[in-house]
């Protein structure tokens, strides 16, 4: 689906990347543990998280994450926002909790970027 649809499903605000709402997304990964995001998130996926520091943006860049969805109504600090603009990474913020965000996207066809870990 298009990022625009993700925005609608989650009743989200687009903080960065209004011009990228026509981007296609199919998969997502959700975690607040960046160590695990680095280990498991796949290129082109949405990243669902409640962390808002600049490292989240750096990691999204490193991993070729399509867009960051901040859950629980989190707002990024100014320096994270500026970095996301520089690196052209869209940030959406939704008031839904992580579980609800994932569930709402899943029922509409977004799947995990992997189903389970190998061990």
């Amino acid at each position: 689906m298009k990022l625009r649809e993700v925005k609608e499903i989650l009743d989200a605000n687009v903080i960065v990347g209004e011009e990228k709402l026509d981007m296609e997304v199919k998969t997502a990964f959700g975690a607040d543990l960046m160590s695990d995001v680095l280990a498991f998130a796949k290129a082109g996926s949405l990243l669902l998280t409640g962390l808002t520091n600049t490292q989240v943006i750096r990691i999204a860049n490193v991993l070729d994450i399509a867009a960051i969805i901040l859950v629980r109504g989190k707002k990024p600090p100014m320096e994270a926002l500026e970095l996301a603009k520089d690196l052209h990474i869209p940030i959406l913020t939704t008031k839904y909790i992580l579980f609800e965000t994932a569930g709402r996207l899943y029922t509409r066809g977004i799947v995990g970027c992997l189903e389970k870990v190998e061990k």
Binding site: L33, M34, S35, D36, V37, L38, A39, L51, Q55
Partner: peptide, 8 residues
């Protein structure tokens, strides 16, 4: 900051 899970 979200690190220190022993994955690095």
């Amino acid at each position: 900051m979200g690190f220190g899970a022993g994955m690095g």
